[in-house]
Structures are given as structure tokens and as C-alpha cells.
Design a protein around this nucleic acid. Structure first.
Lengths: 109, 109
DNA sequence: GACAGGTGTCAGCAAATTCTGTCATGTGAT
DNA sequence: ATCACATGACAGAATTTGCTGACACCTGTC
């Protein structure tokens, strides 16, 4: 199987937003850190922070805190090389592994 | 190109919901009409109606009103055979054709 | 010490989405 | 006429999402 239904839903939800699509597009070309990215996208840092968190939670991007030469802590983000093939059949397959409740996010056995 | 950025976003938004994924999954196996589908999914008809409208607006499913043998008007829905290949690169490509404002849905020149 | 430039987080408002309940339509069978 | 079963649409509540404007932290430089 490709991914579980829950994971697929998380990825689709993460990508269903104009800003987040742009973020993935930009990071796909080159990795970047939060402040600069916010400037390039023309959005506030708290907002970008939220979108990045959503993308990272879905496993589409990954961030790493690094220290620049002059001692500043900078968080760089880069895309995870994902490949999602969506067809009616693949969706039907993924739905089989979709948990009933979207809120019980974790260990509902 | 595959699809325009706006269309891609519309499809992703349509698929970013547990119920709508299930709907696509079910219709992918066999076409069905609204009332029966609502029963199989365990949701109210007004709600299903809304989800179906969203999926149809995104071009993922298509409905046709038909008359059963005993004269009842029944609206059957079936999936459109879509194929979406999502990768960081394809997203970057689609972002190029993404209109700035999501509200000006039409003739913003 | 004050500043610049990086990080993160929180409260709270605005807006979109999701959902329910109710109503109105039409047909064939009882 | 009344019931069963199909359709569609609307008003309004509840929830989630998107966004802004503070705030606090750290480090190196002026």
C-alpha cells in the first residue's frame, strides 16, 4: 500500500490551501529559513509559522534548526520528496484504512 | 501541463475531507443515488448533498438525474476518472498558474 | 545598554466550513 | 387523501481555519 487513509487525508488537508501550495513550490526550488520565506511570500511570521507546522505535521516538509556563522539560530525548511498518485481507485484503497473519528488522533485501540 | 493551479487547489480542497474521500471511494466501486448513498455512509441527506456539490464543482464526480422504472426521479453520481500526480515539482509547476486572489473567481482582469 | 535579526507562542477576532433541522416539490401505491 | 420514497433549498448553530498584534527569548554588534 502507499499510505494509510489517515496520512493521505492529512497530506491532502495540508495541501488544500493557496499559501501552503506556494510554500511547497518555493521550498521545492530551494530550502529557506522562516523570516526570509515570510518576506518572499508577503505574509506575517506567526502566520507562516502556522502553515509550516501544518505542512511538517503532514510530513511534506521538514525543518532543522541551524546556527549561522554569526551565531543566529535559523530554522531551515526543505521539502520531503513525496509522490502521491491520486486516482479513484487509489482513493478507494486508502479509504479502507481511514479511522472513524478524526479527533482521536493517536492511540484509539 | 496537467491542470492549472486553481483547478488543482479546487481538487485538493474537495478531497481534503474524510466524508468526501469516502464518497469518492464508494462511487469508485459503483455508482449510486443520493438517498441510498446517505444511508450507506450514515449521514444526513442535506449534508451529503453539500459534499456531493463540492466534489462535482471540482470535477471529480458527475451526477445525472434519471427516472427509475416506477417513476421516481433519482440522481445518480459516478466518479470522473481523474489522475493526479503530486510531487514537489508538480506542485511548483502548478503554483505558477495560481491566481492571487481566491475570491475573484472569474473575470479578474 | 540599546539595537538588529533570528526564534517561538499566546489571546482574540474574522471568516469559512461543516452540520442539523425544517420545509417544499414530485411520483406511485395503498 | 395519505403514505413512502425520491429530489432540492434555506436558516442558523457549532466548529475549524486563517490571520493580526502583541509578547518573550537568544546572540552578536554598535
Amino acid at each position: 500500500m502507499d499510505v494509510t487513509g489517515d496520512d493521505l487525508l492529512k497530506m491532502l488537508t495540508a495541501l488544500s490551501n493557496q499559501h501552503r501550495l506556494r510554500i511547497v513550490g518555493m521550498l521545492s526550488v530551494e530550502r529557506d529559513y522562516v523570516s526570509r520565506l515570510a518576506g518572499r511570500l508577503g505574509m506575517s511570521r506567526p502566520l507562516l509559522h502556522m502553515h509550516l507546522a501544518r505542512l511538517e505535521a503532514a510530513g511534506l516538509i521538514e525543518g532543522s534548526l541551524e546556527l549561522s556563522a554569526d551565531g543566529k539560530a535559523m530554522k531551515f525548511f526543505e521539502v520531503t520528496p513525496f509522490a502521491l498518485h491520486l486516482t479513484p481507485e487509489s482513493v478507494a484503497e486508502a479509504v479502507k484504512t481511514l479511522s472513524d473519528d478524526r479527533r482521536g488522533d493517536g492511540d484509539e485501540k
